[in-house]
Amino acid sequence: MKARVTIMLKQGVLDPQGKAIEHALTALDFDGVNEARQGKIIELELTETDQAKATAQVTDMCEKLLANTVIERYDIELMD
């Protein structure tokens, strides 16, 4: 099973890289971008086949290593 973890800065935490992207888009005359935020995606190939167990395992990975929950939030998506 494959897991895709998306890690983003929490709402309310200033994202300077997102801001720079937003400004660059405006400079290129792309109108209508209210906000840009940058995050990262980590894809994991898991041996686990049970969805619930895989979710629990990846949640543990996020809490211990993949995300810093002081400033970041994470979403887990499982794919067959």
Partner: peptide, 17 residues
């Protein structure tokens, strides 16, 4: 030290990048 939890908070990218 912040990552280990020995100190609170986190250090982010400098505001001006």
């Amino acid at each position: 030290l912040t990552e280990t939890g020995l100190l609170p908070g986190a250090l982010m990218r400098n505001a001006d990048l």
